[in-house]
Design a protein around this nucleic acid. Structure first.
Lengths: 217, 217
DNA sequence: GTCTATAGTCGGATAGAC
DNA sequence: GTCTATCCGACTATAGAC
């Protein structure tokens, strides 16, 4: 017992995987407990019930992604006052490169599925995800896009543009089955990941170019 | 009874809605039957069981989307041999405009959710969706992108680019909760739909421009 | 063909031993 | 604190009346 990870954490990791794969109803507490090597009653004891476990998973994801995104945000914060389109553009590219990595890599599959489910049919857990990593990041990229476009576009238009650009990375998680089948891939390995990253960044560049050109007019 | 729609169709429509919202496990046959105004045993009688009903829903969606996309595909087929970048570009814009409409409108919510779920964790029903409307449409747009780029890019790169562009429209369905909250919208009405369409098409244009420019170099 | 009644299974929650 | 044993409700599927 002394060398085993804490019981609640084991349960959260197992729950993250199974909720993501099968949804709230599809993942039984019995299956989650078995995957964590614990009796089902441990869920009741540590969290109170299935629903509370679900919310706890959302909180866990928020903290994890928040940490993973912190550096990208922080370095950007340092240059916040500096209103340089070129720097803003570099930041945007860097964030999208990170996003592609996160969405494509296998380890992200579990929590990516969890988040996508939660967005389609939001429950109480959505607040934790939105107020945690998603809302601030979206707002941050939106600000940078305004700067990259030399404030030629306002925040309302920039926000929609960022969401659309975000979709270019997200689709490789959500529509992964189509990506694999249409390309005849068995899995998305390092080579395929780089191919995807190159395409997404090229199109982000194209969009940023068009906004810069607009500015010169 | 004489004026009521056919019983199987009612069940499929109810199942489409509930499977989309709650997933396969979350939607009970009882709830589906009640929504259709039928006894649960009608599902057994007409389809054999819950799983078969699920597959039937996938088939229904395939046929519906196939019909909805048929005109866009057909007009494009007519100009198939004509290798004009300008025409290909117009076709691509038209298809993406249609996609935005489909993804944003409320009526599409049910089957869009169904498809997204099926892509994240494919079951037998995925084949019907991929071989029906999705695969052919993807291949079609890919061909047109090659033409729009004057064959400057090959089909492999074009396919990834089309998927990424597709994501720009898809995200407004998948991340609808974030779109609403970040913009402070209550719903996505006609004005908001047009705003989204304008942004997506502008970014599609930017991407197409960059490929055309590449060609001139 | 359509519905009612019922059987059999599995899920989440809880009581209580240790 | 942790696990075992058990309860109760909800689910799918089926049998059989009409």
């Amino acid at each position: 017992m002394a060398d085993s990870p804490e019981s609640p954490d084991q349960l959260i990791l197992a729950a993250l995987d199974l909720f993501g794969r099968h949804g709230f109803d599809g993942a039984s507490t019995r299956a989650i407990a078995r995957a964590a090597g614990r009796p089902m009653s441990a869920i009741t004891y540590h969290f109170g019930g299935k629903e509370e476990l679900y919310v706890a998973v959302a909180g866990y994801i928020s903290r994890r992604i928040g940490a993973q995104m912190a550096e990208a945000i922080e370095t950007a914060e340092a240059a916040r006052e500096e209103d340089s389109p070129a720097k803003a553009r570099a930041q945007i590219r860097r964030i999208f490169s990170t996003l592609v990595t996160m969405f494509v890599q296998k380890e992200s599959a579990a929590w990516a599925r969890f988040i996508v489910r939660e967005q389609m049919e939001p429950t109480r857990a959505f607040d934790a995800l939105y107020n945690g990593p998603m809302g601030p990041m979206l707002q941050h990229i939106t600000q940078m896009l305004c700067r990259a476009a030399s404030h030629r576009i306002g925040p309302d238009e920039a926000r929609l543009r960022v969401i659309a650009m975000f979709g270019q990375a997200l689709v490789f998680r959500v529509s992964r089955a189509v990506v694999l089948r249409s390309n005849g891939w068995d899995e998305i390995g390092p080579a395929e990941t780089e191919h995807i990253r190159r395409v997404v960044l090229a199109q982000v560049d194209a969009i940023l170019d068009s906004l810069a050109a607009k500015d010169e007019a």
